[in-house]
Design a binder for these strands. Structure first.
Lengths: 105, 105
DNA sequence: CGTACGATTTGATCGTTGTCAAACAATAAA
DNA sequence: TTTATTGTTTGACAACGATCAAATCGTACG
């Protein structure tokens, strides 16, 4: 079970998180992760309406911004929200965004 | 005392607000507005370190996203945060962003 | 009216970004 | 080892965005 490179919690930048969340496709990914806890990239991409390479680009953006954590299991890559890390760094931010996006966070 | 065109509260879009706040210069403007309540564009621009036309572009972006309200008094334009509108539409969002930006909201 | 002031607009430049398509890589399964 | 599955990477392209400089606009004041 490998982990892809992620920024440390203290290196997560507010403007980068906001930027990552400001794209509709990425916000959709995040709201789904809020509901399903974990998702494979394949599942996430199925209903996004963009090419898989585009989806992959968004996964990377979210990961590099520190919003999601990605681990590899077999040939699957599994994403999850970095809830605790984000809450520690920017208290209340993720919750308010999720509730603003009509997700029962 | 004239008002410039602004989006109605119900037309404020989450992704546009996040996008507006994701630029360091604009986030700086917003954090100053959180402290000073009202600012002329001239005052705001003085310490931003960008050309006044660049600053003007950011004012417009914030206004069109529904983050700030701009009114004209004489030859001054005065900006203020749309706190109530943003709170009504996206409860807690602005506060969490401001506190994340180290502002005693 | 002419001048100064405050701010926007326009034009140019340069980097970034969202997108698709096609090629590639890595892992699992037959 | 061949094949299928899962994602990533690369390349190309169009759109956007941040920036500065110069011109412009609107308002107030001599």
């Amino acid at each position: 079970m490998r982990l892809l490179p992620h920024p440390a919690t203290e290196d997560i930048q507010l403007t980068e998180v906001l930027r990552a969340l400001s794209d509709p496709v990425r916000l959709e990914i995040v709201t789904r992760l809020a509901v399903h806890k974990e998702m494979t990239c394949s599942d996430a991409g199925d209903e996004l309406g963009v090419h898989k390479s585009t989806a992959s680009h968004h996964y990377r953006t979210l990961r590099e911004a520190g919003v999601v954590l990605t681990r590899q299991e077999g040939r699957l890559k599994i994403m999850s929200l970095r809830r605790d890390d984000l809450d520690a760094r920017f208290p209340g931010l993720l919750d308010s965004v999720l509730s603003a996006a009509h997700v029962n966070a």
